[in-house]
């Protein structure tokens, strides 16, 4: 299963199972497949600010 990723700025967790449908990311989308211009829905930080959660 694809990993969850955490925003190091605000602590938001991206869960591939849920996606981010409000911002056009369908449920089931792996973090690596999210477009590069996507930003954290809570704080606006870019994709490069995220780290995988073990």
């Amino acid at each position: 299963m694809d990993k969850k990723y955490e925003c190091t700025v605000c602590g938001y967790i991206y869960d591939p199972k849920e996606g981010d449908p409000d911002n056009g990311i369908k449920a089931g989308t792996a973090f690596k497949d999210i477009p590069d211009d996507w930003v954290c829905p809570v704080c606006g930080a870019g994709k490069d600010q995220f780290e995988p959660v073990d």
């Binding site: 190091t8 700025v9 605000c10 602590g11 809570v42």
Partner: peptide, 9 residues
């Protein structure tokens, strides 16, 4: 206790 985003990172 981290209080991340209450109200800054």
């Amino acid at each position: 206790i981290l209080e991340q985003m209450v109200h800054w990172p």
